[in-house]
Design a protein around this nucleic acid. Structure first.
Length: 581
RNA sequence: GCACCCAUAGCUCAGCUGGAUAGAGCGUUGCCCUCCGAAGGCAAAGGUCGCACGUUCGAAUCGUGCUGGGUGCACCA
């Protein structure tokens, strides 16, 4: 159930009644009509802007519409009062039974409360991580991985058909570098001094690759030129790196559905086909680009290249798909890759990129727009940097200094759940501070702890009730006499619970999983508040000794909060804890 | 030079795709444990929503132009 959607339907229905009665013109567009909680709770439980939105198209003063609409809405048994306020807002107060119904719905629907068919089964592809297969994942990749995975879970919860995809950049020069670096480790495995020249990857994570190469090839590749081993070692090393990356992802709890290889696009005609399709739309031409003004490269020289007319689809300049020597740029296989996604029938594409790829957004959108004839929207989320801190002091990450912080380091120190939650406590386009000490702190300035603590408290209530001989299943609780939940503080928590389906809807539409983390913090806060009021007012305690009926109602509320927290944490990929230790 | 992102309380940040008197946490000040876990809670103080126009019933939110900070800009991926 979704209270807001239900009430919006009631408002639209009332408007139809008014139109039938001739009070307002028929056939008005009600798309702009919203039902929301007012910012100020003093204004009531719900607010609708219907009268103001419709005033102009109806040619009537907003108050006239509002007065008539109030009359209709008062007929609804859920509505306690309906009043016009300000320029034409309609404030509704709802009977307590509505909020009690929210609690009941949660206990009945369980972890499915808030699930919807908003996405209508549309196929969405979420591409994320896509780290080069040249080493283990480092902390910079973690945030993108978490955001992508949480977004995937969120969309699946809201009725999208989600595919999680990793684009393996195994086709460019960086895997050649990997192969050369691995070759040196292969020599090292034979007791020779490795020559880690400038530009090679120095990390000792390649030592095992060298060992494995020795095990496979013996000494047959020693003292051979690159042409003898490049292809084999490139393949071998990148496969090993991908295995490592999959392991890293598993540590975080991320499971990809599809791994797509860049290399696999070469030699199959797929790149050529994508470019030809663009050429058929007159979007490919031979030309020369102007140098960027104000920052002209020193070695600039005009070159004739094959260009994509991305300006025809909103980009600022046209982009090269071929280098001046005739080979493909990185952009070309990426076009082919996105074309492939379009061809696979996705209705919607989402890419999660690092913020340093910001300059890539417009051309990619242009390509998808052209290749899908505008049918498939591409949303690109740029993930800002994570700044590491340790005890309040910045923690510099540097490959050279050996302080290379890997995903494994982070997860082993902080735990997957804590890491995931913390990575979602900021909007994706804002930089995030990650303090190794703070994330493990057990206090309320650590949001993960605070939310988990609320969940543990709910569990504690159930446990204590059981010890007192009151053992309730969720379906028992759903049948409890919830009319006993009438105290303001209890209804406030129920209000917040009723927000959940709406929050999910908003987060899904905007592709913003961080909203869930903030919601959970607020929900936990409301729960802790109610809990503490039980200290001063014993009638607000969840367990009412000797009164099974009242206890059942109050425990139902607590349990409902626990269910929503567990659901929310589940979407973030965080395991709810049963007790704090 | 151009593009993208950011700018909200002393600090760190939310803010419902345009709603009414802009909200949390930290920090400051003062309270609350005979009690389901105080690892919590309550209250006070704190604001020119970077600036200026514009759009309309209504702007932190949308548009334009500035200011300040970050990122990126053929021949890397």
């Amino acid at each position: 159930m979704n209270l807001f959607a239900d009430l919006r339907a009631a408002v639209v229905h009332s408007l139809a009644n008014l139109a039938e009665a001739g009070a307002i013109p028929a056939g008005l567009d009600t798309a702009g009509v919203s039902v929301e909680p007012p910012r100020d709770p003093a204004h009531g439980d719900m607010m609708t802007n219907a009268a103001m939105v419709l005033a102009k198209p109806a040619g009537l003063p907003p108050r006239t519409i509002a007065d008539a609409l109030c009359g209709e809405l008062r007929k609804d048994p859920r509505v306690l009062s309906a009043e016009v306020a300000g320029p034409g807002f309609i404030n509704l107060r709802l009977v307590a039974a509505v909020w009690q119904g929210v609690v009941q719905a949660i206990l009945t629907e369980g972890l499915d409360f808030g699930r919807s068919c908003l996405g209508n089964g549309a196929k969405v592809n979420v591409e994320f991580v896509s780290a080069n297969p040249t080493g283990p994942m480092h902390v910079g990749h973690v945030r993108g991985a978490v955001v992508g995975d949480a977004l995937a879970r969120l969309l699946a919860f809201s009725g999208w058909q989600v595919t999680r995809e990793y684009y393996v950049n195994d086709g460019g020069a960086q895997v050649d570098v990997l192969a050369r670096s691995a070759y040196e480790r292969y020599r090292e495995a034979h007791g020779l001094e490795p020559e880690i020249r400038e530009g090679l990857y120095p990390g000792d994570y390649l030592v095992p690759v060298g060992e494995a190469l020795k095990a496979k090839y013996g000494d047959s590749l020693l003292d051979k030129g690159e042409q003898y081993w490049m292809n084999d070692i490139r393949e071998f090393a990148s496969a090993m790196m991908m295995a490592e990356i999959r392991g890293d992802l598993a540590l975080l709890g991320v499971q990809m559905d599809v791994f797509s290889s860049e290399k696999a696009l070469y030699g199959t005609g797929k790149i050529e086909a994508a470019i030809e399709k663009l050429r058929g739309m007159d979007l490919i031409y031979e030309g020369t680009l102007e140098p960027p003004k104000g920052k002209e490269p020193e070695d600039w020289e005009p070159r004739v290249q094959t260009l994509f007319r991305s300006t025809a689809h909103g980009d600022d300049v046209d982009r090269p798909v071929k280098k001046s020597d005739g080979s493909w740029t990185y952009f070309a296989p990426d076009i082919a890759y996105h074309f492939d996604k379009v061809e696979r029938g996705f209705d919607q594409l989402i890419d999660i990129f690092g913020a340093d790829h910001g300059g890539y957004v417009k051309r990619m959108k242009a390509a998808v727009s052209a290749l899908s004839s505008g049918r498939v929207p591409l949303d690109i989320k740029l993930i800002q940097l994570v700044k590491l801190y340790k005890g309040g002091a910045p923690f510099k990450m540097s490959k050279r200094a050996g302080t290379f912080v890997t995903l494994r380091d982070v997860v082993e120190q902080a735990g997957a759940g804590v890491t995931r939650f913390m990575m979602l406590t900021r909007k994706n386009d804002v930089a995030l501070d990650f303090d190794f000490d703070k994330v493990l702190e057990q206090s309320k300035d650590n949001p993960v702890f605070y939310v988990q603590y609320a969940h543990a408290r709910v569990n504690s209530v159930l446990r204590k009730a059981g010890e007192a001989g009151m053992i309730f299943t969720d379906s028992d609780l759903a049948k409890a006499d919830l009319s006993q939940l009438s105290h303001e503080a209890e209804l406030k928590l129920a209000h917040q619970l009723g927000e959940w389906p709406r929050l999910i809807e908003i987060a899904s539409k905007s592709n913003e999983p961080h909203r869930i983390a903030f919601y959970l913090y607020e929900l936990a806060s409301d729960f802790h508040s109610l809990w503490n009021q039980g200290n001063t007012d014993s009638s607000l305690r969840f367990i009412q000794e000797g009164n099974v009926a009242t206890s059942a109602a109050k425990i139902a509320l607590a349990r409902a909060a626990g269910v929503v927290i567990a659901t929310g944490l589940g979407i973030l990929g965080v395991e709810p804890v049963q007790e704090m230790r």
